[in-house]
Structures are given as structure tokens and as C-alpha cells.
Simulated scan of single mutants.
Amino acid sequence: MTPVNDLAGLNELLTPEERAVGASVRQLCAERIDPYVGEWFEQGDIPRIRELTKELGALGVLGMHLEGYGCAGMSATEYGIACLELEASDSGVRSLVSVQGSLAMFALWRYGSEEQKQRWLPAMAAGDAIGCFGLTEPDAGSDPASMRTKARRDGTDWILDGRKMWITNGSVADVAIVWAQTEDGVRGFVVPTDTPGFSAPLIKHKLSLRASITSELVLDGVRLPADAMLPEVRGLKGPLGCLNEARYGIVWGAMGAARTCLEAAIEYAGQRTQFGRPIAAFQLTQQKLVDMTLEYTKGVLLALHLGRRKDAGSLRPEQVSLGKLNNVREALDICRTARTVLGANGISLEFPVIRHMNNLESVLTYEGTVEMHTLVLGQALTGHAAFR
């Protein structure tokens, strides 16, 4: 996770095993993602996504922080470093991995029956099956308690009706974890995507996360057997627990996008000549590069601290909110500043900056908006809930 100039010596804080994880993911990204991702972004697609998912599975990053069922069983810090390297290539690729491992697989691993785990987790860890996570709805984003998707009993079966929105992996998924209102509160359901009544139309016309499959989920009388329900959780603590896992990965991932833009700005400033000298030799450009490096360094230190806490079993949800709020906001500012260093070239997909900048506009919103994380921290500081 070293930028062009590791002024703070961040790599020295990592174990050899952690550095090896970063190097392995960085190599795969350099060979299989970086040469093509600008074109994927421009096309608004990831061609051969199943092939890429299998390569990620073979590397061991899908559900890598989970134990058993073909998962790698690595530490939270190692998972975070992998997220940083993946998002250094593109937020959409990190989203693919996060939704697979920290949302769909984690829900099965934490709340599923043994039969559900055996059916899906080994295939998902290998990349042979792709998962998605259906919580957000057209009218229920930050307020999931107001979801309208319902599951009702019909004999021993369940019937699901509703809509989910902004679902990563939806159109290519083999299984969806869908959360719905029941007479017994919010429950999760394991929905094979070939079930009659299930469809996942692709969402188009995005200007962010274009190298990512984003879909609507439509559930129109989807009939499921009784054992499709996740048995080990009831209420919103189920989906919120999964979201906390995914938010942790974002704390790291956002710094990957920031690192790539910082590297691009430093390299460009050294090569671009104006008024007879490289723009890196001008004070205002140096100030931008220094400020970006400061915020990147602080963001990685915060991510590493939270990773160590998570590995120690002492990480609290509000601390994840602290990391997500700070790191995505600062990463976005780094990308915007890098764009100014590159001038007009900063808007070209020949360089990575505008792509990362656009992607982070989505990352700023998903897995909890700035407003929601601000209120989580406000409640932790004051003891007063100001959500309503």
C-alpha cells in the first residue's frame, strides 16, 4: 500500500504476511484489471465478469475473512489491505468483492443454516457462484425499517413481493440475499435467482461505478420453501450487521482510490512542463501534493487502527462510521485535487483520476450516507439520537 513516496513509512507497520497479501492482490490487478478498467468504465460493463470472479476466488479474496467452507480465514487487516489494492484499480471491482464476501457470504456465514452454508459458501468462495444483497429499495434507503418488500406464508412456503434498488452484482448473481417484512419482523431469505418471479433488470445511464453491474431486483410472487429463510437472525440487526462488515472494507478501499490519484498527480506534475519547468517545481502544486499525502497517510493509519481493533474483537460500529465518513470524504477531496493538478487531462480516461473521482461520489453515499454516519457519531458523542 505504498504510494510513490512513503513519507510516513506505512509499510513498516505491516507484518510480512500482510505485505504479501497486498502484493498478491496488486499483481492480479496490474495484470487483469488495470489495463482494461478504463475501457470497462467507458462501456459501462465488466466483460467476462464470471471469469474475473473465478480469478478473484482462486486468489482467495472472496469471503477471505470468513472461516471454513472454502474461505481463506484471513485477518480483518489482511482483508482491508486487499480492499485497498482492489479499489486502487477501481471502486466497482472492490464493490464486487465486498458485496460477495461482506454482504452475501457474510449473511449466510453468520445467520444461515448449515444446509444453506454448505449449498452456497464453497461455490461463492471459489467464484463459481456470484451473490448479491437486496436491502435498499426505491423509497427506503437510509431508513430500511420502511421497506415495502414483504414475505407472507402460504402453507409451509414463503411468497415474496417487492422491489430492491441499486443492487451490485444483481443481474449476474446466482443467489440473492433478500430482506423482507414478515408478520414476525424483518427476515432474510436466500433466493436462487432462477426462481420463477425473480428478475434483475440492469440499471443504465450511470456516470459513477460504471465498471460495476448495478441492478434492480424485482420479486413478483417469488415462492420459496420454508428453509429459504435465514434462521439465526430476526429484525434489522441482521442486514445492519452485514452492512457494518462492508463499511469496514470501504474504510480501506477508499484509500486505494486516493493512492492511485495521488500517484498519478505526482507523476504528472514531474513530467508536465510549463513556463520552462515541471509544474512539480511550483509552490502551489507542491502544496497540493503535500496536502493530499497528509490526508492519505492519516486515512491509512485510521484504517489500520480499525483493522487491528477488529482483529482484536473490540471494533465498535460507531468506529466504523468514523472511518467510513472520514476516509471516503478525504479520498474524494484527494481525487478532486489531483484532477486540478492534471488540468484538462484530469477529465480524460487516459488517466485514472476522473474515474476514481466519479466512483467515489457513489461510495460517499452507499453503505450509509454522510448524514447518517454523522448522526451515528453525534449520538456516540452526546448520547442523543437525532435521526428523526
Results as ranks from 00 to 15, higher is better:
residue 295 E to M: 07
residue 126 A to E: 09
residue 189 F to A: 02
residue 258 A to S: 11
residue 90 D to H: 11
residue 25 V to R: 06
residue 268 Y to W: 15
residue 88 A to M: 12
residue 200 A to P: 08
residue 229 M to N: 00
residue 316 R to P: 04
residue 108 L to P: 07
residue 378 G to A: 10
residue 343 G to F: 04
residue 358 N to C: 11
residue 198 F to H: 01
residue 291 D to A: 14
residue 115 E to N: 03
residue 23 A to C: 11
residue 321 S to I: 06
residue 169 N to I: 05
residue 137 E to V: 10
residue 339 R to G: 03
residue 384 H to T: 12
residue 29 C to E: 06
residue 361 E to S: 15
residue 76 A to L: 02
residue 273 T to D: 08
residue 194 D to A: 11
residue 164 K to D: 08
residue 29 C to G: 03
residue 264 A to G: 05
residue 249 G to W: 02
residue 257 A to W: 01
residue 321 S to L: 04
residue 165 M to H: 11
residue 206 K to C: 01
residue 177 I to N: 01
residue 256 G to M: 02
residue 304 L to R: 11
residue 375 L to I: 04
residue 181 Q to F: 00
residue 381 L to S: 09
residue 85 E to G: 06
residue 108 L to Y: 09
residue 374 T to W: 10
residue 32 R to G: 07
residue 323 G to C: 11
residue 110 R to M: 08
residue 40 W to D: 05
residue 65 H to R: 13
residue 212 S to F: 00
residue 243 L to I: 13
residue 331 A to M: 09
residue 11 N to V: 10
residue 339 R to N: 05
residue 205 H to M: 06
residue 132 C to M: 03
residue 156 T to D: 13
residue 65 H to Y: 10
residue 340 T to W: 00
residue 256 G to C: 03
residue 143 D to Y: 13
residue 100 Q to G: 06
residue 144 P to Q: 09
residue 302 L to V: 14
residue 347 I to M: 13
residue 261 C to Y: 05
residue 372 M to G: 02
residue 99 V to W: 00
residue 316 R to T: 14
residue 111 Y to K: 00
residue 130 I to G: 00
residue 10 L to V: 12
residue 293 T to H: 14
residue 135 L to V: 14
residue 35 P to W: 06
residue 292 M to W: 02
residue 177 I to R: 01
residue 210 R to A: 07
residue 85 E to A: 11
residue 158 W to S: 03
residue 187 R to E: 05
residue 46 I to L: 04
residue 182 T to L: 00
residue 53 T to G: 03
residue 304 L to V: 15
residue 175 V to D: 02
residue 175 V to T: 08
residue 16 P to V: 10
residue 77 T to A: 06
residue 213 I to Y: 12
residue 334 I to D: 05
residue 300 V to D: 00
residue 383 G to T: 12
residue 18 E to F: 01
residue 124 M to S: 09
residue 232 E to V: 04
residue 31 E to M: 09
residue 25 V to M: 06
residue 39 E to F: 01
residue 32 R to D: 15
residue 364 L to G: 02
residue 172 V to F: 06
residue 67 E to A: 12
residue 185 G to H: 05
residue 86 L to N: 08
residue 152 R to T: 15
residue 242 C to D: 14
residue 155 G to N: 12
residue 194 D to Q: 13
residue 83 C to Y: 05
residue 15 T to S: 15
residue 76 A to K: 08
residue 103 L to A: 04
residue 201 P to Q: 11
residue 294 L to S: 10
residue 252 W to H: 02
residue 115 E to L: 03
residue 330 E to A: 10
residue 267 E to P: 02
